[in-house]
């Protein structure tokens, strides 16, 4: 799924990154537990999370995740945005819950990691 369509479906706001030229999303994983994110073997899924702190971005960096979506109307902090920009990540925010976000993406063809 291309990022502009994802943003439209989820009423998402672009925080940083290039939505037009960012790679499409094939797989997604939803978690507020960064330890779970670090166990993933899938190459670069979309991370859907309600955890909004600097370790969300740091964990994504370590797990080679380049596309992040903050759900539940969580907002990125300035230090998160700075680190996301340093790592060429695309960071989005949606007012939708993780459940609703996941349902919409699944319904529109985004695959689960497992």
């Amino acid at each position: 799924m291309k990022i502009p369509l994802l943003m439209q479906l989820l009423e998402a706001r672009l925080v940083c990154g290039d939505a037009q030229n960012h790679p499409s999303v094939e797989h997604a994983f939803a978690s507020d537990l960064m330890s779970d994110v670090l166990t993933l073997d899938t190459c670069s899924p979309l991370l859907i999370t309600g955890l909004s702190n600097i370790q969300t971005i740091r964990t994504a960096e370590m797990a080679d995740i380049h596309t992040l979506l903050l759900a539940r109307n969580k907002k990125a902090t300035p230090d998160m945005i700075a680190l996301a920009n340093q790592n060429n990540m695309l960071l989005l925010e949606t007012p939708f819950s993780i459940f609703k976000t996941s349902g919409i993406l699944y319904q529109n063809g985004v695959k689960p990691v497992y």
Binding site: L33, M34, S35, T39, L51, Q55, T56, T59
Partner: peptide, 16 residues
């Protein structure tokens, strides 16, 4: 735990 860690997965994940 508020930072997204502390679930008892760190050392097993290092071993893996």
């Amino acid at each position: 735990r508020e930072m997204g860690f502390g679930a008892g997965m760190g050392l097993p994940n290092i071993k893996k």
